[in-house]
Design a protein around this nucleic acid. Structure first.
Lengths: 139, 139
DNA sequence: ATTAATGCAAAATCTTTGCACTTTC
DNA sequence: GAAAGTGCAAAGATTTTGCATTAAT
């Protein structure tokens, strides 16, 4: 972890993008900073776009969508499916699960030791388990 | 369970609808039969509408959506969120979890004893746990 | 008869795409 | 300057809504 300031220098974001094989463009750097410089976050494309606009970053919603998917494919983000109406992206790549607040459409991490799945089925023949998602829905 | 024939008499569907406080209209009866007379099913609105059309049941897609939501609110169906692109509805109301075949967009029940969540977090203050969904994603 | 449900088409969302323009390397 | 990325607007896909018509009690 960093020092007192949670703000990572921009060069770290740039390095992160390069590592992932993504060109550090103005938009990717700006969105990357919004996503990664403020701890674990759960965002929708619309939310991130709003934030960017408010932060005076010129970026289109289409680019936000593209960027979120590029980041996801590059392993910088994880897509969480909790609501069939919109996609959420999680900056926390560690193994963990989620609370979903149904009324508020809000996602929250559950620390890994708070949910234990002690028995898992075998993957059906010809398949492999890719991921196990546990969603605790609260209201 | 019924006799050899898995086909429940129509009157049972009608009773089921009345119990749930829903008027047994032609469309609801037809959709109810498609859903409940063939064991546990996982359907999307589009799938159910296609089936209905093929079975020569005159019903609009909008009515299928309305009906699926009414059935869900009435406790006859459960909505499963696995894919942010479309909604799935499950006729199995018993406590259980799911496999999701990512390539095929197919859902399958996992029997309750095959997945055991042995530790659960407390619900955040002011909330109550409404449901815990476990999705095992395979491909 | 009264009240509820349906059908249709139109609107509303969310997301992706095509292509000219711009930026990065 | 070549290759990759972006913006915009338009298209796609899924789901919801409004209102006249039809059906159930």
């Amino acid at each position: 972890m960093d020092s007192m300031k949670t703000v990572r220098p921009c060069s770290q974001i740039i390095a992160q993008l390069r590592n992932a094989g993504l060109r550090p463009t103005r938009q990717r750097i700006a969105l990357g900073r919004q996503l990664f410089e403020n701890g674990d976050r759960h965002v929708t494309a619309e939310m991130l776009h709003q934030e960017a606009v408010q932060a005076k970053v010129r970026v289109s919603l289409a680019t936000v969508y593209n960027t979120l998917h590029q980041f996801t494919e590059a392993g910088l983000l994880r897509e969480i499916v909790v609501d069939s109406q919109r996609s959420y992206f999680d900056t926390n790549m560690a193994d963990h699960h989620h609370f979903f607040y149904e009324g508020q459409n809000k996602l929250e991490d559950i620390s890994p030791d708070q949910v234990v799945v002690s028995t898992l089925p075998e993957a059906p023949a010809g398949t492999a388990i890719k991921r196990v998602d546990v969603i605790v829905r609260v209201s």
